[in-house]
């Protein structure tokens, strides 16, 4: 066994999840591939969204994959960092917006 939970080499084995559940694995990868095709959004835009979400869900495999994907698409480091900040802003906003509940409860319980 590896000494850590995350091994970058495991990303290469991702397609192998299908071996233990062919139907669900195949359906997932078909869906995944379709999502990233050019549609109303460009592949470039989808790559940046994926990069931001990768950070929010804190997935090291996804961060590696979509940093590389962005480089391949000519996305600059400034664009990548702005995408990450966008994700971070939503994530911290999601925490902070709960402060309204705290304030409401505080006011209700206080004189």
């Amino acid at each position: 066994m590896a000494d850590s939970y995350y091994d970058p080499k495991d990303l290469r084995k991702f397609p192998k999840i299908t071996e233990w559940s062919e139907e669900l694995g195949t359906k997932f990868f078909d869906y995944y591939g379709k999502v990233f095709e050019k549609g109303a959004l460009s592949e470039r835009e989808k790559s940046l969204i994926a990069l931001a979400v990768s950070h929010v869900v804190k997935c090291p495999y996804c961060i590696d994959a979509y940093t590389q994907d962005g480089l391949q698409r000519g996305i600059t480091k400034e664009e990548m960092m702005e995408a990450v900040h966008t994700g971070a802003a939503i994530e911290s906003g999601a925490t902070l917006v709960h402060a309204t509940q705290m304030m409401k409860k505080y006011d209700k319980l206080s004189h």
Binding site: S42, E43, R44, Q68, L71, Q72, R73, G74
Partner: peptide, 18 residues
């Protein structure tokens, strides 16, 4: 265009547009 690092080039048509 050849990538400036250890990665492969993306779709030629999309990069040409950019």
């Amino acid at each position: 265009y050849n990538p400036s690092g250890a990665f492969l080039p993306s779709n030629q048509e999309a990069l040409e547009q950019d």
